[in-house]
């Protein structure tokens, strides 16, 4: 069944690539100055991989972007999830923290970019900060909801069994909230990619956003397309990685599907 699906999917992609070829190289309906032909894209990919483009070769850009994603995402998840759990569990923490949240939340994460660059310059720190701001919110909100929707019977059962506080947090609260925590992490990861590319577009020395930015200035559609495809592939790969981590972390849900 799965094999059949992937064959169909592969077919769709091949048809799309075929159309692309027909519209650009074969008929010239779309001018190469607006959208690259498969040939252009291939040459751009070759160039950035082998000789390099915008200060570096492709793997350097990719590694740089991945490093920022990893750091920003981890910082956001590492602060957002505990904060959300705390706010979900303690009415007092909720009362103290939510007003700050309500003030900051309406500001679109990308609007922080100028301030971040002003404070921290064009280096990595500014980007990590912006990713943090963007990816933090979904982690907090979903962890919060995860705690709030825990069935009270489960909490009562734990207290009836005399579960001490930290064991309760680690073995009851977190696992009970974990499906929602992972929903938050998925959204955080998406937000991380969106913000990273935007931040690199505004100003960066390396990274996939930097490739896109330079290619735009050079009016180089082939390279723009290569940059976009790289972002798409990496976004997909990191999402898969997270999904894999989720299925490892939540074995009781995995067996529910099997």
């Amino acid at each position: 069944m799965i094999a059949r699906r992937s064959i169909v999917g592969l077919g769709t992609i091949m048809v799309l690539v075929g159309c692309w070829y027909v519209l650009t190289s074969a008929t010239g309906l779309v001018s190469p100055g607006r959208f690259p032909s498969p040939q252009d894209a291939w040459e751009s990919a070759w160039q950035v991989t082998v000789t390099g483009y915008a200060n570096g070769r492709l793997h350097e850009h990719i590694l740089h972007s991945l490093k920022l994603i990893a750091l920003g995402f981890l910082v956001a998840a590492g602060t957002g999830v505990p904060l959300g759990l705390l706010m979900g569990w303690s009415r007092r923490a909720d009362a103290i923290i939510s007003p700050i949240f309500l003030l900051i939340r309406p500001i679109p994460p990308l609007a922080w970019i100028p301030l971040a660059i002003l404070w921290l310059g064009l280096g990595d720190a500014a980007k990590i900060m912006v990713i943090w701001f963007a990816a933090f919110v979904p982690s907090v909100i979903n962890s919060y909801t995860g705690v709030r929707t825990i069935e009270c019977y489960v909490v009562e059962a734990a207290s009836m069994l005399g579960t001490p506080r930290w064991r309760f947090v680690l073995e009851v609260l977190v696992p009970a909230a974990s499906p929602m925590i992972f929903t938050g992490l998925r959204l955080s990861l998406q937000a991380s990619w969106t913000t990273l590319v935007a931040a690199e577009l505004v100003g960066a020395l390396y990274g996939l956003g930097r490739i896109l930015n330079v290619a735009q200035q050079d009016i180089y559609p082939g390279m723009i397309l290569v940059g976009m495809i790289c972002v798409a592939i990496l976004g997909w790969a990191t999402t898969r990685l997270l999904a894999h981590a989720e299925s490892l972390a939540l074995p009781w849900l995995r067996t529910a599907e099997a």
């Binding site: 019977y153 009562e156 059962a157 734990a158 009836m160 069994l161 579960t163 009970a176 009781w252």
Partner: peptide, 28 residues
């Protein structure tokens, strides 16, 4: 307050879905 001197069997079971049968029974 609740406590393990008074064990409860809940009408809705109230098991921990993320713990195995063994772990559920073992926690107390």
């Amino acid at each position: 307050a609740p406590g393990p001197d008074r064990a409860v069997v809940f009408q809705q079971f109230a098991l921990f879905p993320w713990k195995t049968v063994f772990e559920n029974i073992e926690l107390g």
